[in-house]
Write a protein that binds this DNA or RNA. Structure first.
Lengths: 148, 148
DNA sequence: ATGTGATAGTTGTTTTTGCAACTATCAAGC
DNA sequence: GCTTGATAGTTGCAAAAACAACTATCACAT
């Protein structure tokens, strides 16, 4: 008889931990800045990489293009993101943060880093890097799986 | 100037990997058995623990009670889960799998284990256990965080 | 130039989710 | 017994997600 213990089942444990940590964090950018997760992610990418396309954000964040599309729409309405025509491919636009967007980004980042610092404090110092390394390996392994 | 690289930011990486692995798996129990993630989780718990309450499933899976409630409702409609009155507390019911539910469970488990085996194969043998250990530590650390 | 297939992004629709409010029951003190 | 506060589970509603279908543009072969 095959055995399955959900607590030792990686997909479950991973999504459980991810949901847990995400719940804690979400409160920060949601209540204080009115951002959803996809919006914060776009902001985070645009805060470090400038003049990129929406599809580039998709690649970097692994979010579906509809999610990114609507996130950017809202950020644009908030005057946080600006779009500039891409002359070499008029299907896409180059995205970047407005000054207001940069301010927003610079306000949020320290809070995120503070959270991470608390986390690093609560764990063994090297655990976080360790998890990141293993997640990297996991992602690479999964990339080779044929899609369901 | 504070720096934030999303790729080294644990909450992001965690949810990215979780989404990735979950997408791969979901296809199995969704397309073949018509189950959602919460439904599969309830099934998985009930496959190993019998005569438990919904709130017990909440504790074990960290899912919100509304999620569990609706999942159990559907599983009951599918004649996969049966409810038995709890004489000592009539607010709750004892849940267990029907024979049909047990069959379903026994069909899905090998597929989940096969998936895990492929994963174990793609990674270093001990990586999975390693991740599980670290996630445990992470969950414990997060449990002490005040909610946002 | 033109047709074909791919790609960038958007929109519409249906499912899920999350949250708050609700019912019913319980437990404990008075 | 009756109040009060907590707990188990459900429901309604609004926000968010998934999925498919769509427009517009591009790249490239004919």
């Amino acid at each position: 008889m095959p055995q399955l213990d959900l607590n030792d089942f990686l997909p479950y444990r991973l999504s459980r931990s991810a949901a847990l940590i995400s719940r804690k964090l979400r409160a920060i950018y949601r209540r204080k800045y009115g951002l959803t997760v996809p919006e914060w992610r776009c902001l985070a990418i645009l805060g470090t990489e400038d003049n990129i396309t929406a599809s580039h954000i998709c690649q970097r964040t692994d979010m579906h293009k509809t999610k990114v599309s609507r996130a950017i729409q809202k950020l644009a309405r908030m005057k946080v993101v600006m779009r500039v025509e891409n002359p070499t491919d008029r299907r896409s636009e180059f995205l970047s943060l407005t000054p207001r967007g940069k301010t927003l980004f610079n306000n949020i980042v320290p809070e995120m880093l503070a959270f991470e610092a608390r986390l690093a404090n609560a764990l063994n110092a090297s655990d976080i890097n360790h998890i990141l390394t293993l997640l990297n390996r996991l992602d690479k392994a999964l990339a080779n799986f044929k899609d369901g």
